[in-house]
Every structure is written in structure tokens, then in C-alpha cells.
Design a protein around this nucleic acid. Structure first.
Length: 491
RNA sequence: GGCGCGUUCGUCUAAUGGUUAGGACGCUAGAUUCUCAAUCUGGUAAUACGGGUUCGAUUCCCGUACGCGCUACCA
């Protein structure tokens, strides 16, 4: 029986989940779902200094909203409390400290690691000197030369220390990556990495590999920034004789200037996109297609379709710039697909609180639906509808070279038409359109010279929905009031 | 500086040792239309550069350029 696929997303609780993180979570999730495997969420909090309270909750909440749910590991319950589920916990890395230390000890017993007593000051000075001499930077191996007895004596004497990997000094390693193929590194250029810090906590390199192994992770899917340190990871796996996972280093998501996506440039917090009204479906669709494509001309994919189609080996190698225009287009698409009730519940908050007529608000929301990339845009687009009185000073009420008198004449007549409108058709803009257009024909007028003044009278906007739709929205009384006020204004 | 990765329209991408190098977003023109939006139709625009290999390279190889990542007791 083939081994069960187990993938994971392992963020650090140092801030909000950013867009790149969404993809780092999505791809492993897609893969696990497709192959009937497990998707695990592990929190990597070994850096106490960068730990941010609330970050784990935020990460989980955001993933939950996006519909990327792990079936094992850290999660958040409905009351907002962090929970852990699954048989291979704890899934919060700092809680695995003693296991990491035991692994480090084993590595030392195998002579694959050693104590280092060098101070920060010495290390800094060493690095500066290396830079000045234009030499590659890296640990000079001073403590590597210490005998085990000497080192143990220092430790017993209570001297502060870290544990470093004892990497080969010659030869090379090949990291096999499913996206990039075989990547070769010379051992002599790989630094003796610290794996246990002075505070006893493991660094990423040991902690992540140990946990991945202990949790049975089969596919390590992570950002390209890890490729350079992959040799150390391979070393650790091999030192313990563990079976290597499949490595997949994802291309980075970039700012417009092609630098790594960062908080300095634009908004990268996924939660803020959600808050702005970008729909989870749009975000998932968008992020999935950055750096991967199932071929063909389809642009819209549901999460389910992505699960079926995803193929790790077809992920691109080059980084991708975050293109908000396309996200907007996708959001417009998904907004229009939403069931009316759901759509309205998203829009309501952007319509005036002072307006109490919920049914009116609902019809306004539906009226502007296809023009929206984001829910908030409706506020400005529809503001005129809720104003008690319109200001016509900034816009022409006359069609082309028509005169004010002609416009007034049209409006006066249109007012009568509105009055005569059958009450039963007041909600039906198509019916209203039919009636009014036929009356225009009867009069021998043109659509433009009549409809333009009418629409502007109702909206005071250069651009707006049609006069028929506006009459339907307003109802007879308010529509007549608007036209009446326009007539006053024209005098 | 060293090491690693990368490079197809402005952006996201597809394709193949032989194609008019395809799609989408954007932009743009037209149709529709009272305006806008939506919709439909059309247009715009790309294989970084230089060498090879080959009958033929965008595709394979080498080099150059450029970009990015890493170079922490951060992840």
C-alpha cells in the first residue's frame, strides 16, 4: 500500500498571515485532499523574541475564513480558543523543546554536532573581518576543534553555549526538489548552523526537520527562501537515517518592483483583504493561479476543482508579481455569483445607517451589483439615491445642443407619464421602460433628448443606472419629487 | 563579495525541437445604448542578449546581462 500523504503548513506566529502564506498553506492542502492524505497545521514559535500574542489565533481565523482547514494540528474552535487535535502532538513547536534537545544530543553522540561557546561579540567581529577581507562569511569552526572532554568541562562549569551542526568540509550534496530538479551545493560553503540556541530552544533547522519527521510529513512544501538551507536539512535527515520527504520550494510572490512581497510595499495582510470585501473564493482562485496553472483557458476555479487538478510538479519556478487588477476582476465575478441574500449581507454595512427601509437598501444593492469590485464601492455609487435633495449645479440637464426650455418640456411631460404609471408595475423597471419608450415614440421625441434629462433629474450624476431603474428604486412619490425639484431648479 | 534560483505580451500564464507563439487581467476600438456598468466582437503587446547543437530552436547546452533569495543563537 502506498504511503499516506501528509503535508503541512508551518507558519511562525510573528504577525498576520500574508498572501504568500495563503499559497504556502493552500498548495499542501490541495495535495493532501487530492490524494486522501492529511493536512497539518503546526505553529513554529521557537523564536520567543519575535512571538506575537494573538498571531496564532489570527492565522487560524484567516485560514478558516478562506476554507483552508487542517484535519490535524493546531486549530481554532468556535469560541476563538486555540485547540490541538490529532495523535502526533503537541503541534506547537515550543512545546516540543525537550524532543528537540534529545535529537541534538543524539547528533552529538554521532559526532554530527558540537558545543560552541563563542560569544555574540566574537561572532560579529569574525563576520566583519570576513566581509572586509571579501571572504565568504560563516562560522570559522573554532569550537569544532574542541575535544569532547574539553567541551563537556566547559558545559559542566556552566559556560553558555549553543549546539552547531558538524557539517562535512568537502564534497557536495544534491537536494532533489520536485519543482526545481536536482540542486547541487558544495559542503565547504555551507555553514555549521546553530541548531540549539543559548536558551535551549531549537532553531528552525532542527525543530522543523525533527517535527516533520515525527509527524510523518511526506511533502515539505515551503517558500524558495529555504532552498539555500536545504543542504542542512538533508544532512539532518541523513544523519538520523530518516527517509527524505519530497521537497518543493515554491517561487516567491513579489511586489511590483520584483522584490519579495513585504509589508513595506502595499498591503499583504490577508485579513485586511478579507475585511475589504475580497471574497474567500476569489482570493483562493487568485492565489492558486500564481505560480501554477492547470493548462487550458479556464480562469475560474472552485476549491474543489483545484483539489482535483493540482499538480505540484507543474508549479512554476519564477516568482510572480501580485496583480491586484486581476484579483478585482475575480472578485467582481464571485460577487455576482453570490446568492442574493449572502450578497446583500455583505453590502448592507456600506449603505447609509440613517436609511431604515431595508427593502429599499436591498434593491439598491442588487441594482449596483455588476459594477462592484468591492462592496465598499457601493457607498459612493449609490449615495445620490439616499440624499433628500440633489444638487444639479455640477451637471448639465440638457441633451447635446438642446435648450433648457426643451429639457423642461421633456421633464414636465415625463412627470405626467410617471404619475400615470400603473402602481402594479412600479417595481418592474423593464415594464416602466416599455411604457415610457412608447410614449416617447408617440411624442415623436428622441430617447436621448428625453431620457438624459430624466436620468440626470433623478440622479444628478453623469453616470448612473437607467432612469427606469431609478424610477423603480424611488417609487412614484420620490421620483416625482425629484423631477419636480429639477423643474424648479431649471426656472 | 560568495552560493543558489530565475528570465515568454505591462501583469498572471499556455505551448512545442517545426504554431500566424494561445488564453486571462489591463488598456483600446466597435456593436448595444440616454450615460455608466454588464455583455458581445475586434485590436494592442512577449520568447532578455550572445554563442553553440540541429535541416530547424522560444524549447536542449554554454556564456553574458539583469532580477530575486540565502549568507543570524529569525523563520
Amino acid at each position: 500500500m502506498p504511503k499516506k500523504i501528509r503535508t503541512r503548513f508551518a507558519p511562525s506566529p510573528t504577525g498576520y498571515l500574508h498572501i504568500g502564506g495563503v499559497r504556502s498553506a493552500l498548495y499542501p492542502e490541495l495535495l493532501a485532499r487530492q490524494l486522501g492524505g492529511d493536512f497539518i497545521l503546526r505553529i513554529e514559535d521557537t523564536d520567543q523574541a519575535r512571538f506575537m500574542p494573538g498571531a496564532t489565533e489570527n492565522l487560524c481565523r484567516t485560514l478558516k475564513m478562506l476554507g483552508i482547514e487542517p484535519n490535524e494540528g493546531v486549530w481554532i474552535d468556535d469560541s476563538g480558543k486555540i485547540i490541538e487535535r490529532g495523535p502526533r502532538g503537541p503541534y506547537i513547536q515550543s512545546l516540543r523543546k525537550s524532543a528537540h534537545q534529545a535529537y541534538a544530543k543524539q547528533l552529538m553522540d554521532m559526532d554530527k554536532a558540537y558545543y560552541c561557546f563563542c560569544t555574540e561579540e566574537r561572532l560579529t567581529e569574525m563576520r566583519i573581518n570576513q566581509e572586509l577581507a571579501h571572504l565568504p562569511t560563516g562560522y570559522d569552526g573554532l569550537c569544532r576543534k574542541l575535544s569532547k572532554e574539553e567541551a563537556q568541562k566547559k558545559v559542566d562549569a556552566g559556560e553558555g553555549h549553543v549546539i552547531r551542526l558538524k557539517l562535512p568540509k568537502e564534497g557536495s550534496v544534491v537536494v532533489d526538489d520536485i519543482i526545481r530538479g536536482k540542486v547541487k551545493f558544495e559542503w565547504k560553503l555551507v555553514d555549521d548552523q546553530v541548531i540549539i540556541k543559548r536558551d535551549g530552544m531549537a532553531t528552525y533547522h532542527l525543530a522543523s526537520m525533527a517535527d516533520d519527521h515525527d509527524m510523518g510529513i511526506t511533502h515539505v512544501i515551503r517558500g524558495e527562501e529555504w532552498l539555500s538551507s536545504a543542504p542542512k536539512h538533508v544532512f539532518i535527515y541523513q544523519a538520523f537515517g530518516w527517509e527524505l520527504p519530497v521537497f518543493a520550494h515554491l517561487p516567491l510572490i513579489l511586489n511590483a518592483d520584483r522584490s519579495k512581497l513585504s509589508k513595506r510595499q502595499g498591503d499583504v495582510s490577508t485579513e485586511s483583504y478579507l475585511d475589504k470585501g475580497y471574497l474567500p473564493e476569489a482570493l483562493i482562485n487568485f492565489v492558486a493561479l500564481m505560480g501554477w496553472n492547470p493548462k487550458g483557458d479556464q480562469e475560474i476555479y472552485s476549491h474543489k476543482e483545484l483539489v482535483d487538478l493540482f499538480d505540484l510538479s507543474k508549479v512554476n519556478k519564477a516568482g510572480a508579481i501580485f496583480n491586484i487588477e486581476k484579483l478585482n476582476w475575480l472578485n467582481n465575478h464571485y460577487l455576482r455569483q453570490l446568492p442574493d441574500d449572502k450578497y446583500f449581507s455583505l453590502i448592507l454595512q456600506y449603505l447609509p445607517k440613517t436609511e431604515s427601509d431595508l427593502e429599499l437598501k436591498r434593491r439598491v444593492a442588487l441594482l449596483f451589483r455588476e459594477r462592484l469590485n468591492l462592496p465598499a464601492e457601493i457607498t459612493e455609487l449609490s449615495a445620490f439615491i439616499f440624499k433628500p435633495k440633489l444638487d444639479y449645479s455640477g451637471i448639465s440637464l440638457t441633451w447635446k445642443d438642446h435648450t433648457k426650455e426643451e429639457a423642461s418640456e421633456r421633464l414636465k411631460t415625463a412627470k405626467e407619464w410617471i404619475e400615470q404609471l400603473d402602481d402594479s408595475m412600479m417595481l418592474d423597471s423593464k415594464a416602466i421602460e416599455q411604457v415610457i419608450k412608447s410614449k416617447i415614440i408617440d411624442k415623436g421625441w428622441g430617447n436621448g433628448d428625453t431620457l438624459w434629462p430624466l436620468r440626470v433629474a433623478l440622479s444628478a450624476q453623469e453616470k448612473s443606472p437607467s432612469p427606469f431603474e431609478l424610477i423603480a428604486i424611488y417609487g412614484k412619490t420620490r421620483a416625482l419629487k425629484r423631477v419636480g425639484e429639477t423643474l424648479e431648479y431649471l426656472k
